[in-house]
Write a protein that binds this DNA or RNA. Structure first.
Lengths: 143, 143
DNA sequence: CGGAATCCTGGGAGATACTG
DNA sequence: CAGTATCTCCCAGGATTCCG
């Protein structure tokens, strides 16, 4: 089939892209760090070691699944340590490593930026939306 | 039904959470900024204004849909400007605003961190995986 | 050239229930 | 308390096609 060659070409491009990503691990890491909960966990751990339940309380809206998953990934990446204390109710503490602290600094910077600038962003949105609405109305009646 | 009350309670919590998010717009902004392509676009625009086609070439692997979508969002948020030059082949340039540049600085910091530290992360992963494998084998045969 | 509209799929993410 | 396992749903995002 002729259609196969197109499919094959796309597959090849896909493989080339995957190879590119493999050759650029920093970008995959960048992607991972951009995860929805990563920044929140990192910031939450900024105040020192925290128990699992502390984290789930401090990070509003996180499911235990996503919290566990995020913590596992960060532990694997060497950004935090997981310490199990085998007492009667099991106790697990999470703490940032030096590597994790170095990233936390940067992430906290973004968080601060978001908190400091979101008003500017919102007013920009209002202007944009107002402009869009005006264009829609304008192009509606008048040719 | 008794089951309804459970459902109702969950709905209420859901609404409460949504209200919380609405009351915390900075977090939504943080989420948005964490988007997969946002950082790449921001960094790519660091070298000055770029045409649409320039961006799609510089950002390997981005689809035209996601590039457009990301650019629209960033434009709406006031992070960049979109300039259309109505010449024969239409020309569109994107350029960071001051607000966009301020964020780009921070994002570039994360990118630099990822590039500088990914080796540490990878070796941490290797250690973690080796440990996990050892535990799996150990718990397999010996009780 | 720079998009918009449409269709479709993978997997990210929540809810629930169970375990040590 | 701190998870694990499973099911499901939703939508981010890719492919394709059409437009000015």
């Amino acid at each position: 089939m002729v259609t196969r060659t197109a499919q094959e070409r796309r597959d090849e491009e896909k493989r080339a892209y995957d190879a590119y990503l493999a050759a650029c691990p920093a970008r995959k890491l960048l992607d991972e760090v951009s995860g929805k909960w990563v920044s929140l966990v990192l910031v939450a751990l900024g105040d020192g070691p925290q128990r699992y339940s502390d984290l789930s309380r401090r990070i509003a809206g996180v499911s235990q699944k996503m919290l566990t998953q995020t913590l596992r990934t960060l532990e694997r990446d060497g950004l935090l340590t997981r310490t199990v204390t085998a007492c009667v109710p099991v106790r697990v503490d999470y703490e940032l490593t030096d590597l994790g602290r170095s990233l936390r600094q940067l992430v906290a910077g973004i968080k601060d930026w978001a908190e400091a600038r979101f008003e500017e962003v919102e007013s920009a949105r209002d202007r944009y939306d107002a402009r869009s609405a005006a264009l829609t109305i304008g192009s509606d009646g008048a040719g």
